[in-house]
Amino acid sequence: MHRKSRSEALFPIVNACLLTVISFVCLYPVLHVVAASFSDPARLNAHQGLLLFPQGFTLKGYEYALRNPNIISGYKNTLVYVVSGTVINMILTALGAYVCSRKNAMFVRPLMMLIVFTMYFGGGLIPWFIVLKNLSLINNVWAMILPGAISTYNLIVMRTSFLGIPDSLEESARIDGANDFVILFRIILPLSKAVLAVILLYYAVGHWNSWFNASILLTSREKYPLQLILRDILISNNKGAAVQNIVSPVERNQYQDLIQYSTIVIGTLPVFFLYPFLQKYFTKGVMIGGVKG
């Protein structure tokens, strides 16, 4: 009895320690990368063990990284893809969700089945690639926008939310002569701001993170999104990419790691500024999506 109550008293402390360790492990890579990106390269290369604070201080890594024209063009391209892609995503998803939430039109159910089926079965990567090739979407910026124009999962989540809006609102608008476009844009969408915000962020973050489609569909570097440029700089098979605008071979060796760290920071900065916002809405999204789907 005595032992039991002691373990009971000990538990919160053990638990707090455990959670602190897990949090540290989750946070450490971020601390390491940020600290390393400001560190003096010679001291950084000599450093052993965990890195929590910059060793010395230099902005050289950032200077070289920002002088890399690919990073700037990658940022610009990603911005274009995120904004235009998300706008098209939202328009088409809202239209699709509205159509699929209509109960009185006889072809809606077949359409819905057609849509849901694609969640479970697809032609696969190669036939998809051949279709895009035949549509001349290879090395075409539309390839970053059109093939992923609708996420079926998001469409279904949005439809579920539209279905939750009372029919009476719509009926009274219809009596006042409103057509489907008016009902969608004036009644349904303004009442669905929360789900729209969540889905907008899902799409935007998806575009921001995406690199694979670009890697197989785009062939010229000027069109590459940031993530693809980051892949070339960070993932080892293309090491030279980090230091390509440094002439002296000694400096190339010296600065390679530093530039990689700075590049990670530059490439992740926008996500970190938006993080509190993203966390809030993504958490909401988990609740909206639920497990029941």
Partner: peptide, 14 residues
Amino acid sequence: FMSLVVVCGILVNF
């Protein structure tokens, strides 16, 4: 919230 490319970049480094 970190992109896969960045996560893998960090993994390659670590």
